[in-house]
Every structure is written in C-alpha cells, then in structure tokens.
Design a protein around this nucleic acid. Structure first.
Length: 284
DNA sequence: CGGGCCTCCTGAATGC
DNA sequence: TGCATTCAGGAGGCCC
C-alpha cells in the first residue's frame, strides 16, 4: 500500500519527467477514477489539456501537479494506484484508468489502479497556513512528520487532547498525515507502545518516541526506495517490496520479535489488522 | 465537534 | 477441479 515513503518516491520520479512539459490529449477510461471531480470526466480532461505542468508536490499521501492555470492535478493512489510514465506505443495496462500525453517526445502519464480506491481530480490551489499553494480539497490534511514545518509540540498537545486509541490517532490524516497501517504498526513496535494505548494518558516522552519511530521507519523506507527510478518508468507498487525486507512486525504474525523472540501476533482493530509483539508492546 | 463505524472495489487466497 | 466466500485497506461520509 502506498504510504508516505512510496508516494514520495513517486513524486521524485514523476517530477523529472513531467516538470515543464505541456499536456496533450487526455483520456479518462474509467469514470470511477475521477469520481471526486464533481464536474465529470469531460470537464476533468478539458482542464488539463493544453496546460503546462510546473512540478510535482506532496502532502502526506496526496500528490499534485501544479498547472500554469493556477489549478492542480490532485492524485491519491489509494491502495493499488500507480502513476507511470511510458512511451505512447506501450500497450495499455490491464487496469489503466486515465492517461494523458506529454507534448513533444516525452511519452505520457498513466494512472493504473486495480482496486479503484485511488482517484484523480483537478482542483483550485489556495494558500495554506504558511502561504504555500495547496489544493483546496486537502486543506484539512495535516503536515506529515517529514515536513520541515511539522510542529512536534502542537502535535503532542493535539494528540493527548484526543480520547481514542493511539493507532487510531496515528491514522487520522487531519492530525498527522502520511501514516497508514504498515507504518503505524512498525512505528508502534519501534516505540514499544500498544495500538490501543489511550491517547489522553500518553506522556510527552511517549509521544516523542512514537514520532521519532515514525520518522525513522519512513526515512528507512525512503532510503530503500529512492534508487529505482532512473528509467522511463515510475514504480509505485508499495506491496512489491523494496522495503518489505525491513519490516519488523507488519504481516509477520508467528515470526519471532527481533527484540525479544516472542512470536508476533495479529490483532483485529476496527475491521483492520494490527501486528505487534505482545511482550514489548503491553496494553498498559 | 469528534469518535467510531460503514462503504466503495478487485483479485488472491482460502474453504468445502 | 470448481465454485463460493473471505480478506486487504484509505478516506469520506454518516450517525450518535
């Protein structure tokens, strides 16, 4: 699943192929891919065609391509979305949803998404709290922990004001963005905290620990994934694994904990799974 | 307002 | 072997 590190790898890879390029023909092959673009697929295509892409930006798991029109092409990869750059002659992928050509000899961009949880839309840009341009539909998305403007103290205060479980809060993109199920489990394991720890009872040092753990696990993943986009192809497949070798608990039920040897367990959490060491990560 | 659920979707994996 | 069921999850929306 693409979480912050995977999306950042895509951002970097995509940026070098699209920045400064004009957009040619746009084809929406599946209406669900643009369902959040309320004016519909025809309007979506019209707002892109003929525009110039100025770069690729990211906040949390959202990507957007600022356009010379003052709008942005906003993308969320969902669980299985990919943004690929390919030559025009390349055969259509099985789950190709949207494609657009780049003017000149630069190939084209393809949005491929098997499970269709991802989406694209064209949205206006507006100034965020620091004056930077942000698509208006994601104004509610918090800064991510790798953002230089992320405020640790404000996060700690806001987190402990919540009355919920720690993991639930870590997955709340309006409180802290970029963390999904995989990195939440990995960060909680590194910080030796149980997913159900009540947020209101956390000590400041524990918040610091889980934040440091989230940053470390995401930085490790980014370092592992940041080497593979030197061809006309942007890899976004979070499941295929450049980082999977480095996971400590996610998907590893039954394997010994790297710290204490106790078998990792999988617990149900709001119809989701949580992987943890039952000895290192006590509920209380 | 916020917390906790539900839903969307497809294909791999599992069950009988 | 084949058909049916289960499972995975990001995030918006709904309900209390």
């Amino acid at each position: 699943m693409p979480e912050l590190p995977e999306v950042e790898v895509v951002r970097r890879g995509l940026d070098q192929w699209v920045a400064g390029h004009g957009i040619g023909e746009v084809r929406v092959l599946h209406p669900r891919a643009v369902r959040r673009h309320v004016a519909g697929g025809v309007d979506f295509a019209a707002r892109l065609a003929g525009r110039t892409v100025e770069g690729v930006s990211r906040r949390g798991k959202y990507l957007w391509l600022p356009l010379d029109s003052g709008e942005g092409l906003l993308a969320h990869l969902g669980m299985s979305g990919q943004l690929l750059v390919k030559t025009s002659e390349t055969a259509a992928e099985r789950h190709l949803r949207v494609r657009f050509d780049l003017v000149g000899d630069a190939g084209g961009v393809r949005f491929v998404d098997q499970r269709t949880f991802g989406h694209l839309m064209v949205a206006p840009l507006a100034a965020d709290d620091s004056g930077a341009a942000l698509p208006t539909p994601i104004m509610h998305i918090a800064r991510d922990p790798l953002d230089p403007l992320f405020d640790d103290d404000a996060f700690s205060t806001a987190l402990r004001r919540r009355r919920t479980g720690l993991k639930c809060a870590l997955l709340d993109q309006s409180l802290i963005s970029g963390i999904g199920n995989i990195y939440a489990d990995e960060a909680l394991w590194r910080a030796e905290l149980h997913w159900a720890r009540p947020t209101e009872a956390l000590r400041a040092a524990q918040v610091t620990a889980v934040l440091a753990a989230a940053r470390a696990v995401m930085a490790d993943a980014l370092a592992a994934g940041g080497t593979s986009f030197d061809s006309l192809y942007v890899n976004v497949n979070g499941e295929s694994g450049y980082f999977s070798r480095s996971l400590s608990v996610y998907g590893l039920a039954g394997h010994p904990c790297e710290r204490c040897g106790t078998p990792v367990v999988r617990e149900q959490f709001m119809n989701r799974s949580s992987h943890l060491c039952p000895v290192c990560q006590r509920r209380r």
